[in-house]
């Protein structure tokens, strides 16, 4: 499916969108927009209202008041037409235990009127997803990969992803972030809900911060980060070991401290080195 949107065009527009239900907290007066070619991060802790907002956009919950337009269409009355153009990864993805990913893809392709499975095979290879095992036999992370493929295989114009990296290992998280960046390049609008600040910082253009069901801030990530520049904190990597006291003695330095690499950085370094060695060995075998 090609993208019929122009970069910068509003794909999602909500106006004081409100959903109040039962004793559970919903969302109240949520107004924001997401443009084509933009990754918008919905940021907030669990229970803040991110999923409620997404389900209201998808017409799974009917708004108490306010409105949402997607592709210029009313999210409630024209929901079917909207869903023809989007891909959605629900939070805590599930599809039953018996069916395998390929069966789920086949059904979704038929519902979307697509011949074949689009780019599903390529995505399965990229994410190392097993499409032929029953979903009930897969680990949470491997099920999540199938969910990602179901959301993206038809190259939608809008991607709605609710906690997409939940259960994915760091390597697959990297691959996922690369995919989101590629989708943005393609002109796709992406609404990404997460409480992982690192992934939001790396991939999102703008973020909306939601707290207790209310959107308390919408800003560009770069601007948010610029606000922290007043701390004048820099991270320096030295080619050789240095003494901390020598650094503190440098002109203009107020304080200095050593930080250790994060486990994620160590893991990725080891894994990438391992893959490099394996590829080198494979190449040598090929030469032999």
């Amino acid at each position: 499916m090609g993208i019929s949107l122009t970069v910068g065009m509003a794909v999602i527009e909500t106006e004081r969108l409100t959903k109040l239900y039962g004793s559970s907290r919903g969302i109240e007066d949520v107004s924001f927009s997401v443009e084509a070619g933009e990754v918008f991060g919905f940021l907030g802790p669990n229970g803040a209202g991110k999923t409620t907002a997404i389900r209201t956009l998808l017409d799974m919950l009917h708004p108490t008041r306010g409105s949402a337009r997607i592709f210029g269409l009313d999210s409630h009355r024209e929901s079917v037409a909207i869903r023809a153009r989007l891909g959605n990864l629900p939070g805590d993805f599930g599809y039953g235990r018996q069916a395998c990913g390929r069966e789920a893809l086949g059904l979704l392709a038929r519902l979307r009127g697509i011949d074949g499975l689009g780019r599903a095979e390529a995505l399965a290879e990229r994410f190392r997803a097993d499409l032929d095992r029953p979903l009930g036999e897969l680990s949470r992370g491997n099920r999540q990969k199938v969910g990602l493929i179901l959301a993206t295989f038809h190259s939608p114009e809008l991607l709605i992803l609710d906690e997409p990296t939940s259960g994915l290992d760091p390597l697959m998280q990297e691959e996922f972030l690369a995919l989101v960046a590629e989708e943005r390049e393609r002109g796709c609008a992406v609404l990404l809900s997460s409480h992982e600040l690192d992934e939001v910082e790396r991939v999102c253009d703008r973020v909306g911060i939601i707290r207790d069901g209310r959107l308390i801030a919408v800003e560009r990530v770069a601007e948010l980060l610029a606000k922290t520049q007043r701390h004048n904190s820099v991270e320096v990597e030295f080619a050789e070991p240095v003494e901390l006291e020598d650094v503190r003695a440098m002109p203009g330095v107020v304080d200095a401290k050593f930080t250790h690499a994060t486990l994620e950085e160590v893991f990725l370094t080891y894994y990438e080195e391992g893959e490099g060695r394996a590829e080198g060995a494979g190449a040598r075998e090929g030469e032999g």
Binding site: M60, V80, R83, N88, D92, G94, A104, L111, A151
Partner: peptide, 17 residues
């Protein structure tokens, strides 16, 4: 049953009423 397993959310991501 589909709602409990999560399948309903997936199906209703497609253009089906």
């Amino acid at each position: 049953g589909a709602a409990e397993s999560g399948r309903l959310d997936v199906l209703l991501s497609a253009p089906v009423s």
